[in-house]
Amino acid sequence: MKLAVIGTGKTGGKVVELLTGEQISDTFDVNNKPTVEKLKKADAAVIFVPGSAVDDVFDVVLESGVPAVWGSTGYEWPQDLDSTLKKAGVKWLKASNFSLGMNIIRRAIKVISEGSEMLDNPEYHIHEIHHVHKKDAPSGTAISWKQWLGKDADITSERKGDVKGIHELTVKTAAESIFLKHQAHDRAVFAQGAIWAAEQVVKDDIGPGFYDFSTIFDQAIDR
């Protein structure tokens, strides 16, 4: 499988590092912008551009028709994107966090959410820490944690150093506290997950449309 990599910053650069030369069809950045013709040479595209730059590559990726894996956060995806992709026969996948371990966390949060119904007046708090260059706050992952939890949880954010990503959920009552924490030690974990996602999205049993990484992960787990 040959991948086109759009965005070669902190995480996109890790994707390039993990792939061998024959696995890369091309790499694109602000100095080498993707074209439909070049993208069509790839089996799939892995895209790590900021949310503010999605519109710059959106149309060309769509027109190319290649399956695309998006790691862009802080972007409001069109509500009709799923139907647009289905009509075009195109497969896209998005994630706020490509860590496979994070998806294990997601399933654990569901258990905590259901079990906390038995607790006495629980309070929920999510805290996330990232590097100082991360522009969106709270992180897309923290927002996802709150969605997975399905509870009224406060979210706090912290930016320091070169932290790859720390997320912690606290469930507190007057009598006890529950902590769930995920910490990324290397951005390779996100690159590995994005490559895995690209391998999944090209499969014939996945039809056109706009997918969340969690949906594809659960399909693989439950097979």
Rank of each mutant, 00 (worst) to 15 (best):
G101E: 05
E63D: 10
D55N: 15
H185M: 14
D162C: 01
G13M: 05
E158Q: 11
Q219C: 00
K110A: 08
P122W: 08
V111G: 05
H130K: 11
V57G: 01
P50M: 00
G209K: 08
E128M: 03
V5L: 08
Q200V: 12
V46P: 05
N32A: 06
D154E: 15
F179C: 04
D152C: 06
N32M: 00
K87D: 12
E123H: 05
D154A: 11
K151F: 07
D26A: 14
L119Q: 07
T73W: 06
S144A: 13
A4V: 04
M118Y: 07
G209Q: 05
F179R: 14
E114S: 13
G13E: 04
D29T: 02
L18K: 13
H133M: 08
V69Q: 01
P208M: 03
W145S: 00
S113E: 04
L169S: 03
F190V: 12
A174D: 14
P50K: 09
T8H: 02
S83F: 09
T35E: 05
K94M: 14
E22Y: 06
L149D: 02
P78F: 09
N31Q: 09
G193D: 01
I195E: 00
L119R: 07
K87M: 09
T35L: 09
K135V: 12
S25R: 02
L19V: 00
G193I: 07
T173N: 08
E63I: 01
D154G: 05
V60Q: 03
F58P: 02
V57I: 14
D186A: 13
Q200N: 05
A175T: 12
M1T: 12
A220I: 10
K41V: 10
L19C: 08
V201A: 09
P50A: 02
E114D: 13
S177L: 01
F213S: 08
L85C: 03
A188H: 10
A142Y: 03
D162M: 05
R106E: 01
A108V: 11
E168D: 04
K40P: 04
L81Y: 03
D218H: 05
I112D: 03
G21P: 07
V49Q: 06
V171I: 15
I166S: 01
R107A: 09
Q192L: 10
R159P: 01
V201H: 04
I105G: 04
I129G: 02
F179M: 12
D80C: 07
P78C: 08
L81G: 12
A174V: 15
L93M: 09
Q192R: 15
P67F: 09
K151I: 06
D152E: 14
L19A: 00
R187N: 15
A108D: 12
I126L: 13
W70S: 04
M118P: 00
I166T: 01
K91R: 14
N97A: 09
I143E: 11
E176R: 15
G165Q: 03
E76N: 13
E76Y: 09
R223A: 06
H125C: 06
S144N: 14
D56Q: 15
T73L: 10
Q200T: 07
E158P: 00
T35S: 14
D212P: 02
G207L: 13
K14G: 08
T11V: 15
I155M: 01
I143T: 12
E22K: 10
